[in-house]
């Protein structure tokens, strides 16, 4: 089975052979490439030059929102939705690294476990490794790798720290902000800098009290707000539609060439 095995890669590949394997969608090669980009060593330039020409096709969807709001659970549901459309889905889930030790517990994928046996889903956890802005230094590079490897959509989960999260807006075309009920009053919603960059706000945990109130107060501030219960999948079809609408509105503004 080795020839067709999507996970197989030679032990110590050269950059050109690694790139070739990445382009065929070989998961081990993709993983190695991302690790090399994360270490930011001398291979980075050649790797990026190798993937960038093949990248630029996949929609990049950023998922942000405060810790525990339900970002990973929403992503789990989005994976299911995109898989049912036959798409290959890439996920980059960023968690914060300890500033003291550099260590991290990367646990977002626990919420996405149904997909760990799906050959057409790739999930990668990344520590911030001291980078500020809600993502890791190599997140953008890793998106290029997944895009070049043929993933049809890339979902990026930020660390979820509010004001510090500007970077996702520069990397993703569509930013989804996941909030939980009880965010507070309008002023807090307005102050929560992250809403500025969000194209779509999801009031998650609609099974909890106060979800409708939160929805109402947010309606005044953001164009697209919807309710969801990520644990059951309720509201996810509307979210998928909202993302598609937003993507389409971008195409009208700036048609993707080629």
């Amino acid at each position: 089975m080795s020839g067709s095995n999507p996970l197989t890669v030679p032990e110590c590949p050269t950059i050109p052979s690694l790139l070739k394997e990445v382009r065929t969608g070989n998961m081990r090669a993709i993983s190695r490439a991302i690790s090399l980009l994360e270490t930011n060593g001398p291979e980075r330039k050649a790797l990026l030059e190798g993937v960038e020409p093949f990248s630029g096709h996949a929609p990049i969807i950023g998922i942000t929102g405060y810790p525990g709001a339900g970002k990973s659970t929403v992503i789990d549901q989005l994976i299911t939705a995109y898989r049912s459309q036959g798409k290959k889905v890439g996920v980059l889930a960023v968690d914060i690294s300890s500033s003291l030790t550099g260590g991290a517990i990367l646990g977002d994928r626990i919420r996405m476990q149904h997909h760990s046996l799906d050959e057409r889903v790739y999930i990668r956890s990344m520590g911030t490794r001291g980078h500020r802005g809600g993502l890791s230094m190599a997140t953008r590079d890793a998106i290029h790798v997944l895009d070049a490897a043929g993933y049809d959509v890339v979902l990026v989960e930020t660390i979820g720290m509010g004001q510090e999260e500007g970077e996702i807006a520069r990397i993703a075309q569509t930013v989804v902000d996941v909030v939980a009920p009880g965010l507070g009053d309008d002023v807090q919603a307005m102050k929560a800098g992250i809403l500025e960059v969000a194209h779509i706000v999801v009031v998650n945990k609609a099974d909890h009290a106060g979800a409708h109130e939160t929805l109402q107060s947010l309606r005044e501030w953001v164009p697209e707000v919807l309710l969801a219960t990520a644990t059951t999948g309720e509201g996810i079809p509307s979210l998928v539609e909202a993302i598609t609408r937003h993507q389409q509105s971008l195409e009208v503004e700036a048609p993707i060439s080629g």
């Binding site: 690294s97 300890s98 030790t101 550099g102 260590g103 991290a104 517990i105 990367l106 646990g107 994928r109 626990i110 476990q113 956890s125 520590g127």
Partner: peptide, 11 residues
């Protein structure tokens, strides 16, 4: 984690 390792915890 406290010794600087990136731990991918699967549960």
């Amino acid at each position: 984690r406290d010794s600087g390792v990136e731990v991918i915890y699967t549960g």
